[in-house]
Write a protein that binds this DNA or RNA. Structure first.
Lengths: 289, 289
DNA sequence: GAGTTCATTTGTCCTAGACAAAACAGTTAG
DNA sequence: CTAACTGTTTTGTCTAGGACAAATGAACTC
């Protein structure tokens, strides 16, 4: 469509008349993809030169006035380990931080900023695909292990954690699970990419009090509101719907959907829910709403 | 295309002239999808009645003559726990089996058959999406934890584990990792869905001796051979390429690609590699081939 | 300065034609 | 009777341009 409409890209044709994209145009398209993901409009980008595009990519971290210690958690250091492909070193450095700070602060002050940093590096192409994968894998393992050693006990409320189709990112869910499990909630992690109807079925089957969804920045913002409305409709009224992740920034409010912009809001939402449905009501089905 | 060619599906149109598929046709399409995935051809299925389609789906477990104790590992029992949505019970039952049998036998005798059983249930629609997700999540956690407690030490060879784009299944990789890690190999798990060029980059960056890929039955068989040839070409000659999973059944042999049809073959391949490159050569770059 | 209306942008659907690769079937040779 | 070769059919995916609705941004009014 862009080819027809803007004259770019303009691929050559192979012997079968099929489009063949020169590496230069592919690179340009990758650049454009990054920029459109950040809100730039295709029509405005098509005419620009490679330099102009590169310029637009850069000045992202300009807005934040950086203090004397902009990176108190050593995220840069951790990222450096990843970029050296030192899986063991990374794991040890993270374990050390986890032991020093405790799980909650570790998640909020170390993991979350690091994920953000990696996301930024990803968007600007400063990190290789396999480096990002290694990071995700190692961090996932760390968090899973940290969660698995938490003490057992009576848990409430029951929270189903998952993401919608086309949203494969699981780290946000895992961080949330860590925070919730710490506070004594019962987490039912169902992986990512669950069709809407199945989310609803899962919530009923597991007698969940809450369904928590995560959206990354990469998720196509376009369809999010409709998606959430549909899910809210499919879900029984007494089950809360929590939605978080950077992909929910600047999302219009929806009735019956709790937007958790920051990780901190997860804990607030939990407190709020518990105030409304005091612990005496544990095991009561459908406490009303 | 099917609509144009076979007259099915024949969706109604909404007010915008866009196709709208009745639930019955969607169900029928799901049935057809399952059958084509198992080798049936679309043209032959289109004319059939719902009953005929259902009949074709059934007789899969017919071939194996079932002995008196067809399910010695209690897979059915474990699956039942999943279908009762009893995550805790499943986890405990698995932990118990793991403790009793040891990791290697656990993986080969319990996890692998169970994954197979779940896959079968999935293909015939006898398991809900969210049940399959819960199973995957719980099993993943189990295996990861089992791997993480293995003792450290000098490890060789270095094996990069990943899958190609459009192949999101990770349990096969995780089982392989468990077996390899047990035998003292150094595993570098890079998650799933890595573009070919990045697999090659990763292998170089991590100085891997082996790249191990996993293909599930759901992977489009069509493109597998070409994919593997391309990857083999992109990869340095001294790095072995191991390919496994049920998606590689009936795959034509490819030069320089080791087909591991069964989990057991992983261990054989490891032994073979070690015989060719004896441990004295540890740290030697590109031992020739 | 905030809300409403209009114009533009943009993604996604529509139809129909063509062809190459894969799968099958039939034939021939050992 | 098996195995390799050849021709035919099936099947997926590409091609082209047309249309329209939802999303976005700009201009206007209160």
């Amino acid at each position: 469509m862009w080819e027809r409409r803007y004259g770019f890209p303009s691929p050559s044709r192979d012997s079968n008349g099929e489009r063949s994209y020169p590496a230069e145009q592919v690179y340009r398209l990758q650049l454009i993809k990054r920029l459109t993901d950040h809100g730039h409009r295709p029509g405005a980008l098509m005419g620009k030169s490679l330099e102009d595009l590169a310029l637009l990519s850069q000045p992202r971290s300009q807005n934040q006035q950086s203090g004397p210690s902009d990176d108190p958690e050593g995220s840069t250091e951790l990222l450096a380990l990843i970029k050296q492909h030192d899986a063991t070193g990374y794991q040890q450095a993270m374990q050390q931080r986890l032991a020093r700070k405790g799980l909650q602060r570790f998640v909020q002050d170390t993991v979350a900023p690091l994920i953000h940093l990696v996301g930024e590096a990803w968007e600007t192409g400063r990190i290789e695909v396999f480096e990002e994968h290694l990071f995700t894998e190692m961090t996932t393992r760390l968090l899973r292990q940290a969660i698995s050693v938490l003490p057992a006990g009576p848990r409430w409320p029951r929270v189903v954690l998952t993401s919608v189709p086309d949203e494969p990112h699981s780290l946000g869910l895992l961080m949330t699970e860590a925070l919730l499990a710490l506070e004594g909630a019962e987490c039912i992690p169902l992986g990512t990419q669950m069709p809407l109807l199945d989310i609803s079925r899962a919530a009923r089957a597991h007698q969940a009090d809450v369904v928590a969804l995560s959206f990354s920045t990469a998720f196509p913002r376009r369809q999010t509101p409709l998606l959430l409305k549909q899910l809210r409709l499919a879900l029984p009224a007494h089950i809360a719907l929590w939605v978080g992740g950077r992909g929910t920034a600047r999302l219009p409010g929806i009735d019956g959907v709790d937007l958790l912009a920051e990780l901190d809001d997860v804990l607030k939402a939990l407190t709020g829910l518990r105030r409304l449905n005091p612990p005496s009501q544990i095991q009561v089905i459908a406490p009303g709403n």
